[in-house]
Design a protein around this nucleic acid. Structure first.
Lengths: 151, 151
DNA sequence: TGACAAATAGGATTGAATCCTATATAGGTA
DNA sequence: TACCTATATAGGATTCAATCCTATTTGTCA
């Protein structure tokens, strides 16, 4: 980890504390550790993966706390549930504009960024009927590793 | 149901039989009933919803058969799993170009069609690295009914 | 520092989805 | 047409994700 990333993470953690305070949420070690892990990883982890990793620093944390916290982060907008088709919930704290590709075989989720996808226009028929809270462009397929294996 | 729809469904059922045959799959009453229900509904049902409905005509069908069959339909391309964030798997047998909006509150999935979304370009960096099997544009938010209720 | 609302741990529970295996059946073949 | 075999099914068991429950702990504000 470089000094620059570290500073970036520190800034985000500070912003997170402010965000929690504004939302009337207490700052607990569990909440901080979960958010910090989400910031540092690129693997779009499931609740269970977060649980197993955060346990290294907080051995007594419960899976329920992880699940509850992840949903709280989703609610206040500090993270979100990654889109997909079935499978377990996966989380992402990267709020910068980007899109996801998911390998149907190994379930890896890879970030990419294609600026034209950042703000796809909402058809008026939809805009009139619904409150759109999220717009995504999402790709599925097979990654290089899995192309060769699975027919 | 109009005569036209009925004819359309008959055509699709016939095409489905051919598709199964080509894939080396036997045509069972269960498989046919599940596919037929999927064709007739607009609600993007879960396996359980399919199960409860197909039971009207096949009282002894098992949930496992429904699940297995839905995944089979997905595999041969006769239907697919609807994209979403978490929640249970939902299925769709409408293969015409269209997109989905999902209400985060009541979980209703609504079809819409905006032609520019039918063939979003794949960035070359992605095209080079992965085999893309599916591209989706997906919206989430609140439907009219749920806007008033949930703050 | 004290009080109280919020958060947590950990076990219990629910619910989706898959696995297992004995039985049934679709569909090709003689 | 009747048989044969690979495929499919029913139904219960199992797995795993996710949530619920409640006694205890802990931030945070006054």
């Amino acid at each position: 980890m470089t000094g620059i990333q570290s500073t970036d993470i520190k800034n985000k953690l500070h912003a997170f504390c402010v965000q929690c305070k504004n939302a009337g949420l207490k700052m607990t070690p569990q909440r901080l550790a979960i958010y910090k892990y989400l910031l540092e990883t690129v693997e779009h982890p499931s609740a269970d993966t977060v649980f197993r990793n955060v346990r290294h620093t907080l051995p007594n944390i419960s899976l329920d706390t992880v699940n509850r916290t992840l949903l709280t982060l989703n609610r206040i907008g500090a993270a979100f549930v990654v889109e997909g088709t079935g499978d377990v919930k996966r989380f992402d704290a990267n709020l910068e504009d980007h899109q996801h590709f998911k390998c149907l075989n190994c379930k890896r989720i890879i970030d990419f960024h294609h600026a034209p996808f950042d703000n796809v226009e909402i058809p008026t028929c939809i805009k009139d009927q619904f409150t759109i809270l999220r717009k995504t462009v999402y790709f599925e397929g097979l990654c290089k590793d899995c192309q060769s294996i699975s027919t």
